[in-house]
């Protein structure tokens, strides 16, 4: 028991130490701490539009990202999240509008922008011809990082993402979670100011997701500006300071996760079977409530404070009724509808 405990302490201490070692961020950024963003705008989009032939993937969106912020693009498949991110790292040219990163225009200064950005794309594009460590070293070379410095960073990053033991293993032998972590490590090899994570945990098991999240949080604490896309609500809620919800190529809503929940779905949600009598009583009691049918269940949303549903249930006891906290998923479904997307 004691031995186990000791091991954990050592592991945690080791992780903390390595986190401290990984980034030589300017002191000012570190002391800023979480939640206190400098007001410096790092990314600014105005009327940003991307068309592929006749299809408009991103339609005149405006947004800003401040230094040190973690901003999430949330939306169903095909909403335009990935396209937006790809324009930020100059992978896709804009069709219309303006997009500045670090005060530089993506159309004119792509090379300078790419120097300060780290990208973890959605798909696995690790180099299968190389081992784990060689992937980092070859990638460092594209940034003109000297060999000795690259090796130092590679060692630190492998430790940070717990990939030290896989150092000399070829990519095909890694698990999905390990590949994901290596992609993150690779995105950090140039010590970027901005980190772009396109669906960082899609397809990962819960353990691997947590590991990725821990890494993202650690980086956020170090003052790295992070933009991520996701369609996982828990991920968006727990990692992001601010969310931009996209649907049909536009940003339809934005705000802090808690704020969005409060604004759109209130505090409590009552879930029950689609029972007409109960429904009638509910509608009478809560005339301003919103009712949504999901299959054979009904979700009732109210903007009234905690506890109102409890009082109601005391008067109308019924089976199969749950009261829960409103969450981001409720917001998401309310704003983007229930239809399936592909």
């Amino acid at each position: 028991m004691m031995g186990e405990h000791k091991k954990t302490v050592v592991a945690v201490a080791g992780l903390l130490w390595s986190i401290a070692a990984v980034f030589k961020q300017p002191r000012a950024v570190i002391s800023e701490g979480r939640g206190m963003f400098s007001s410096e705008v790092l990314i600014k989009a105005r009327g940003l539009t991307k068309k592929f032939g006749n299809f408009t993937a991103v339609n005149r969106i405006d947004f800003e990202v401040n230094k040190g912020e973690c901003v999430g693009f949330l939306g169903p498949n095909g909403a335009g999240k990935t396209t937006t991110v790809r324009m930020i790292y100059c992978f896709l040219p804009l069709t219309e509008g303006e997009l500045a990163v670090g005060g530089m225009s993506v159309t004119a200064q792509a090379r300078e922008i790419k120097r300060i950005i780290g990208v973890a794309p959605q798909e696995d594009n690790l180099d299968p011809d190389f081992t784990v460590v060689k992937n980092l070293l070859v990638y460092a070379r594209y940034f003109d990082i000297q060999k000795a410095e690259a090796e130092k960073r590679a060692v630190e990053l492998l430790r940070f993402f717990q990939l030290e033991e896989k150092r000399d293993v070829v990519i095909s032998e890694l698990s999905t979670g390990m590949k994901r972590r290596l992609i993150l490590a690779r995105a950090l090899i140039n010590e970027p100011q901005i980190l772009l994570l396109d669906e960082p945990t899609t397809g990962l098991d819960p353990q691997a997701r947590r590991t990725v999240w821990e890494g993202v949080r650690a980086l956020r604490r170090r003052g790295v500006t992070i933009i991520l896309t996701t369609h996982y609500m828990d991920e968006a809620a727990s990692l992001c300071d601010r969310l931009l919800i996209m649907d049909n190529s536009r940003i339809i809503e934005q705000g802090a996760p808690v704020e969005l929940v409060k604004r759109h779905v209130g505090e409590d949600v009552l879930e029950m079977d689609n029972d007409e009598n109960l429904l009638r009583a509910l509608k009478k009691e809560f005339p301003s409530a919103r009712f949504e049918v999901f299959g054979d269940r009904v979700h009732v949303f109210t903007d009234q404070p905690h506890g109102v549903f409890e009082n109601f249930l005391a008067k109308f006891p019924s089976k199969n009724v749950t009261i829960r906290n409103a969450n981001l998923e409720d917001v998401f479904l309310k704003l983007t509808g229930k239809g399936l997307r592909d």
């Binding site: 992978f91 090379r111 790419k114 794309p121 594009n125 299968p128 990638y139 594209y142």
Partner: peptide, 13 residues
């Protein structure tokens, strides 16, 4: 392998 995509995300054009 999407190797080109990976390289294009760096300062290489």
């Amino acid at each position: 392998q999407k190797t080109f995509d990976a390289i294009i995300a760096t300062p290489v054009s």
